[in-house]
Each structure stands twice: as structure tokens, then as C-alpha cells.
Design a protein around this nucleic acid. Structure first.
Lengths: 148, 148
DNA sequence: TATATATCCTACATGCCCGATAGGCTAAAT
DNA sequence: ATTTAGCCTATCGGGCATGTAGGATATATA
């Protein structure tokens, strides 16, 4: 299950990727436009900044902007940051491997085997999707979609 | 994150798939062999029975057995049963679709798009893996693995 | 029929974490 | 100096996952 934090983070980042580069956006505006509790979003954006994904400017005319090119910001990093490893079980994680206490021999564990496949499939999607590519996909879909 | 329930369920089911068909296994034995709290496992197996995946026999010589061929018991069903839909967000679920309250237009939502891909990838793995095929994979891996 | 065995079922405890809020601090622009 | 907007820590409430308790029910065996 994707946490609200990760979900809100992705939404905000996509909005920033759509926005004029070098023009900061304010928390309050992002929150209003995407129906996110403003104080909660504040926390989230702060986290993104402390992880080097966002930059900020304080004071009047300030706000947040992407710290690097949206083509190099991947969903995998965002999701891991807020929700931890992608793997459904710690023993199947590549980035945060922890063995199971109750598992005698991992090589013979069906759960391990199956969940590693799930992890790999998930990682392939999320580590292969950047803000830029996602933005592009949305563009494609919406241009062919029926109007409301 | 895979819940303990789902994890224990898969382990127990694999043990049953390895076991003589039509020879019931007792909760206590399954629990001991796989380091699962017995009363907790009881709950889990009961759930599996009420969902038609297991059969049971009461009294002396009783226990649990698979209700159908292990080649037709898929991990997807097990995981959904204990942990709910595979999709990271309800609006990306195929089996339990619920729209997001905060989403104006799903077709233009990047989160929706990306998470649908994650769901599809996960479902492909879990709905494509049966107890029998998983058992077979474990066999293959363990035969080529180095001994402890 | 009596006893032992093993599942059935409901209720409960408990601890953790997610979502969200509060409120003061700091920096920058005007 | 004042206003604006981000920075940061603490806190809180509610829900859920994990696990436990204990009795009811069904079945095999002696």
C-alpha cells in the first residue's frame, strides 16, 4: 500500500515538473490545487528537500523547486524514501536486505523466491519511471482520452 | 508489505503441497516446523478453509489438507485474501476498484498511471505463481545451490 | 458411552505507525 | 520593521496487525 505521504509527494513533484523551472511554488498553492492538508504537505516537501530532491527559497517570492532535472528523478527513490523498501518482505529487498529470523535456509524458501520476483517487477517499474517520463505518459493518455 | 498472516499462510500451504495428498496435517505440527505461533496459525488456516482453499478433518487423525490441486492454487488469491488488493492505491485495483476522493480526473493522474503499472506487474507474478509451480522453482534452485 | 483429540469461533489485548495538527523559529524580500 | 514563507520538533488520535484466551463442537478410538 502506497502511503499518503508518498502519494502526495509524487503529486507535488509532478506539479513542479509541469511548472516553469526556476519559478518556485508555494506549499499553500500546491496543497490547495491537489487537496492536500497544507501542514502535512509542508512536512513532506521538507523531507524531499532534506533528501536532495527539492530546493527551497525562503521569504517573499519563495517556495520549492526541483533540485535536478525531472528526467533524473525516479519514483523508486520517492517511494523508498517515504515507504521504505519496495520488497514485500525484508529478506527480498535489494537496498535494505534483512534476513528473516524464522527462515532456516533462504535458498529453499518459497516466500523468499516469490517475493523477490515481486520486488524485481516493482523495482523495474518504479526505478524505470522518472517524473519526466511519467509526465510524458500522462500527456499521451490524456490526448487520446475522451473529454469529460 | 506482506503481512505475517499471508506469509505464514503461504508457508503452511507449501508444506501441505509437499505433503502426501489426503494425509491431513495438524496445526501444531505445521506451527512447530515453521516457527509460527500455533494459535495464530489456527486462525489463518481457518480463514483458508472458509475461503475454500483448505479442507479439514476434526478429531483424532484430523488436520488440514488442500481442497484442490496445488497447481490451481495461486499466490494472488492468498495474498488478496489476507492483505487485500494488490494495487498500491485503490484506484489502480482491478479486483477492488475504488476511486480516489481527491482525484478529479483519473485519466490524467500520474499516480494512477504509475501504480496501475505496479499493480499489473505484481499481479502477473502472483497470479502466475501456483503452489505447484513455486514448489517446482524451489526444487530447481535448491538442487543447484551450494550446501550450507 | 466415555475419553481424548483436534478443529471451530469469538472476543480481546496491545503495541505500533499513519495521517494530521500545533506552534514557535529562521531567513529573505520589500 | 514588517511581512512572507519555509524550517523543525513535538504531539495526538485512531486504526490495524500481531498475537492470546477460552470455550464449543465434531470425530475417532477404546
Amino acid at each position: 500500500m502506497l502511503s499518503k505521504k508518498a502519494k502526495y509527494a509524487i503529486k507535488a513533484l509532478l506539479a513542479l515538473a509541469d511548472h516553469e523551472r526556476d519559478e518556485p511554488m508555494r506549499i499553500a498553492d500546491l496543497a490547495r490545487e491537489h487537496q492536500i492538508p497544507p501542514k502535512f504537505l509542508e512536512l513532506i516537501l521538507l523531507g524531499l528537500k532534506n533528501n536532495g530532491i527539492l530546493q527551497s527559497r525562503k521569504g517573499r517570492g519563495g517556495g520549492y523547486l526541483l533540485a535536478r532535472d525531472p528526467a533524473h528523478i525516479y519514483l523508486g527513490q520517492i517511494v523508498r524514501m517515504f515507504d521504505g523498501p519496495l520488497a514485500p518482505v525484508p529478506c527480498a529487498s535489494q537496498t535494505a536486505y534483512v534476513p528473516c529470523a524464522d527462515c532456516r535456509n533462504e535458498a529453499v524458501c518459497g516466500v523468499h523466491l516469490a517475493m523477490k520476483e515481486v520486488r524485481d517487477a516493482t523495482a523495474k517499474v518504479l526505478d524505470g519511471t522518472s517524473l519526466a517520463s511519467l509526465r510524458h505518459k500522462v500527456e499521451l493518455v490524456s490526448s487520446t482520452a475522451l473529454p469529460l
